[in-house]
């Protein structure tokens, strides 16, 4: 039954092509709403960073470039596997489709796992905003120097002048932004499970693979958000 293109055209559409274009356009419009959704957080980030640049430098130095960079690579790789899943669906390779979807999902969970490790670290070091938040920029500066990091004039200045309250603001935004991103990842992982089930049931073929394609669009979008979050949160003022 999966081989008949017409079986997949819903009653209100005239053709499979119309249905496919509608699905694609609909997903892109949804992604526009997602862009604006994250836009509110990015606006808050840009405004506060322009007000308190030194606190942002301190905040970002307490994040791990290693973990953040690793996660960036993981997400980019998952975007590749997702693109390959769509490619496999387009070319009627059902087993390959399933395999790439599984791989995408696994990479997504790796990302989330690393995120859990990072969050736990922040919790331990009292970097979660709220009553227990505590940061001492001068002590952090001493730790950096003890670790042998070259501390230039700008960096020293930032640590000396940063207001701990403003660093807390950085962490409020860090958790809001990465948290919102993680929620999208979890939704994405759920979609992967649904896609996998349908792939295994043989619902998709070169004649009908809209769900694989539009879910892919969503997954890539979540990847793009991280492409911006990584430099904006982890890489500020490292020089």
């Amino acid at each position: 039954m999966s081989s008949h293109a017409h079986a997949h055209v819903a009653h209100h559409f005239e053709s499979a092509e119309q249905q496919r274009q509608s699905a694609q356009l609909g997903m892109w419009i949804f992604l526009v709403t997602e862009v604006m959704f994250f836009g509110g957080l990015f606006a808050a980030y840009v405004v506060y960073r322009s007000l308190y640049p030194e606190a942002w430098v301190v905040g970002s130095h307490l994040l791990s470039i290693g973990l953040g960079g690793f996660n960036t690579a993981v997400l980019l790789a998952s975007s590749l596997t997702m693109a390959l899943a769509v490619h496999a669906a387009q070319t009627d390779k059902r087993n390959a489709t399933a395999m790439w979807i599984v791989l995408t999902m696994v990479l997504g969970f790796v990302f989330l796992g690393v995120k859990v490790v990072e969050y736990a670290g922040k919790f331990e070091h009292h970097l979660v905003p709220g009553a227990h938040f505590h940061v001492d920029p001068m002590a952090e500066l001493a730790k950096l120097e003890a670790a042998g990091v070259h501390v230039g004039q700008h960096l020293r200045h930032a640590f000396e002048t940063a207001n701990p309250s403003h660093v807390q603001l950085f962490y409020s935004l860090y958790f809001a932004m990465t948290g919102m991103h993680a929620v999208h990842m979890i939704i994405g992982a759920g979609l992967m499970i649904w896609l996998l089930a349908n792939t295994l049931k043989g619902r998709y073929s070169s004649a009908y693979y809209n769900p694989v394609e539009v879910t892919g669009l969503y997954w890539h979008f979540v990847d793009i958000v991280w492409i911006f979050l990584f430099p904006m949160l982890y890489l500020i003022g490292r020089h």
Partner: peptide, 19 residues
């Protein structure tokens, strides 16, 4: 979506005490 995230920010501030 912008008002949605703004309302989420109120939620975050009230619920998680993030300022």
């Amino acid at each position: 979506p912008v008002v949605a995230i703004t309302l989420v920010m109120i939620f975050i501030e009230r619920f998680f005490q993030f300022g």
